[in-house]
């Protein structure tokens, strides 16, 4: 019997990520990771790509992790956990391990969308029984806010600075969750720690499937986003309400949108909260702002259309 997804019940579980880690005050990543770990009802072994989460949680001789954990390098959290999972299968087959264990990999957007993309794709295609969690803060925050392929259009980073001629990042972000879904894996989803129950439900589904799963979690970074330390959760909420970060899941290829804002807010509501987009509100950046809204609208409408198709198909088949 799993612990009900109610905070009162969940709070009785042990925290598998302790305090005393050295992530910045108000960082979104540990909020997400704590929720991921609290959702799990089976023993976990984790690998972690190089990045903020990795360095800040394991500064020798201290570790904040209460689960077996391995960091090897930046681009290979998925390959590393593939090896761990393969050894589990081998030893289980030989009777040298008898416990049920699940395997999880953590990576930031740099380690997942960019340098770790190949190893992630390989691990998904090989159908390892692993869950890959990307905590997406939209840039290489650990090295000091450099652009990644997850950096939103228009954002000011240290390698795409908002200058007098070029106004921040000129390209829209890569849609990694969709790319992962295109691997035809049993489970792929997008979540945010503000919607903790949705996030934890997704983690449970991801852990339950036999095979690879991917969850992309929005994780605000107040240093890189140029925001105060107190509003990480609120920013996640606005991201979902503007459909900048839609919450959805693919279960065996079938799309469900898990959160539809009653009233979809303009993306400027999200952008204006952050210093990294401040320059977009000057008169000569209006094109980028317009594009940003168009991108969000297109993605959201595509999601709605795709979901409607699935619903229609289910109705035709009489599945309701």
């Amino acid at each position: 019997m799993s612990t009900p997804l109610r905070l009162k019940e969940l709070s009785k579980k042990a925290d598998l990520l302790t305090g005393g880690h050295r992530l910045c005050a108000g960082c979104g990543a540990p909020i997400a990771i704590r929720q991921v770990l609290l959702a799990a009802e089976v023993p976990l072994v984790a690998s972690n790509a190089t990045g903020c989460l990795e360095v800040s949680t394991t500064i020798y001789p201290y570790t904040a992790w209460k689960i077996p954990w391995i960091h090897t390098a930046f681009e290979n959290a998925a390959a590393t956990i593939s090896g761990v999972e393969a050894m589990y299968k081998a030893l289980k087959k030989k009777g040298r391990v008898d416990r049920k264990i699940k395997f999880i990999a953590f990576g930031g957007d740099g380690g997942t969308y960019d340098i770790g993309f190949q190893s992630l794709s390989g691990a998904m295609e090989r159908r390892h029984d692993i869950v890959y969690i990307c905590y997406d803060n939209g840039a290489y925050m650990n090295t000091g806010i450099q652009r990644s392929s997850a950096t939103p259009l228009g954002a000011n980073t240290t390698t795409c600075p908002a200058g007098s001629v070029i106004h921040g990042k000129q390209q829209p972000r890569k849609n990694l969750t969709k790319i992962m879904a295109a691997h035809n894996i049993p489970y792929a989803a997008q979540a945010s720690p503000a919607h903790w129950r949705d996030l934890m439900t997704k983690v449970r589904k991801a852990l339950d499937v036999d095979g690879p799963a991917f969850i992309n979690i929005l994780a605000p970074c107040n240093r890189g986003w140029r925001t105060p330390t107190h509003n990480a959760v609120e920013l996640c909420r606005i991201a979902a309400d503007t459909c900048f970060w839609p919450l959805y899941e693919y279960e065996n290829g079938r799309l469900t949108i898990n959160y539809k804002p009653k009233e979809k807010k303009p993306v400027t509501e999200f952008l204006k909260t952050q210093g990294r987009f401040k320059h977009l509100f000057s008169p000569d950046s209006q094109d980028l702002l317009k594009q940003a809204q168009e991108n969000v609208d297109r993605e959201w409408e595509n999601l709605l259309r795709e979901e409607a198709c699935w619903r229609e198909e289910a109705e035709t088949k009489g599945e309701g």
Binding site: T18, T58, Y60, P61, Y62, T63, A64, W65
Partner: peptide, 11 residues
């Protein structure tokens, strides 16, 4: 690091 969660000792 064999002491799981010993970061709790860090202030």
């Amino acid at each position: 690091i064999p002491e799981a969660g010993n970061a709790a000792q860090y202030n």
